[in-house]
Design a protein around this nucleic acid. Sequence first.
DNA 1: AACTGAATTGAACTTGGCTCAGGTTGATCA
DNA 2: TGATCAACCTGAGCCAAGTTCAATTCAGTT
Lengths: 207, 207
Amino acid sequence: MATKIVEPEAGPRSKRAAILAAAVDHFGEAGFEATKWSTVAERVGIGQTALYHYFESKTHCLLTIMRLELQRSHDKFTEATADVAEPVEALRAAVRAAYDVSDQEVLQMRILQNHMDLLSGPRKSKREEAERVAARQLVQLVERDWTNLLVKGMSQGAFPLRDAQLLGASVLGLIVSVWRWYRPSGPTPLSDVSELIEDACVRMVAT
Amino acid sequence: MATKIVEPEAGPRSKRAAILAAAVDHFGEAGFEATKWSTVAERVGIGQTALYHYFESKTHCLLTIMRLELQRSHDKFTEATADVAEPVEALRAAVRAAYDVSDQEVLQMRILQNHMDLLSGPRKSKREEAERVAARQLVQLVERDWTNLLVKGMSQGAFPLRDAQLLGASVLGLIVSVWRWYRPSGPTPLSDVSELIEDACVRMVAT
DNA sequence: AACTGAATTGAACTTGGCTCAGGTTGATCA
DNA sequence: TGATCAACCTGAGCCAAGTTCAATTCAGTT
């Protein structure tokens, strides 16, 4: 029962995409709790109550952003590693793909990281809970992406045998920890980060 | 101007410690936003308004918890690495120290990680802002702890030369990423985590 | 007993997310 | 052209939870 969320097809007048974009901006820059839901409405150019036509709640919007970002991460991983047979090269490709992101996506990753804890407990309302469950499933999918990569490498003898689950979680943790501090306007270019982490991951995993 | 927060000396009837303990429990288990401030009061056995005798706000309490945990982390690092000259051994000792924690401290680390973003923006009220600044300084101190360790190792030739700042942040990120998912009641014992991460850090950093 | 500061409280205020009952818009089709 | 209907939007207010405040109790001191 891998319940897939049906993306509401966009009516021509729909402001859903605009709301998501504005929400990503504000939640990402100022933080979720620090941004007033009404501010998002203002930015989009509608009254606050109109938001509830598209999202059940402020949190529902947040969870949607998180789910979409998780979906994107998973897709990107899959695409990047699809046709790379050699384990070390696949690992490198996966890491590079993880940092091949737009400024908007940086915000989305930040939002995702800052509110992962939301995914543990159940939600009261239906649609929120649906998004949460979908997001949780995607988290597990992404974790499996990385562990599978490691398992494959281990079975081929490219990586020494260790607890792939734990090692995978650690590699993933290392990679995403960057989104807590990285700022596009900051002193360190993302390419530097990408190179260093790619290198670090290979050292961590390979012989 | 490294403004040090003066810890309010405990009057004999003071419930400050009890409040902090209860807050750590609830904020750590259920999450900060999910726990009602009044619940903490209840647990301690006082009316909600009495909380404001000890803390300016719910957030002020949170920031205090974070600062105390950062202080503890820094102290522990210092103590663990003080008399270890050999860089690799110092690194190992530091990692082991990071995971040598009580269940209560696990909660504190979780709270800290989940609300790091609070430290970026300024706070409106005086005492909150004081705690925030103190915490931010401690974050930098801890980051410097790790980079210094790496710099020392690099200058001694034990570690290959690389951007110590960035590498330090990454090592630290890897270590603390564990607190997002680790549960004392979970299937993986912390000793396993500690060993794997210790190993991973050495691989990341050393030749 | 009078005094003092710490500790506590009930009642009221504030803010921001949210509900509700209805109004407007525009794509579609006669 | 105009009728219809679902999508879209709004003003007025509700409610929960954090917070303020003036007044009170408590414990130790003089």
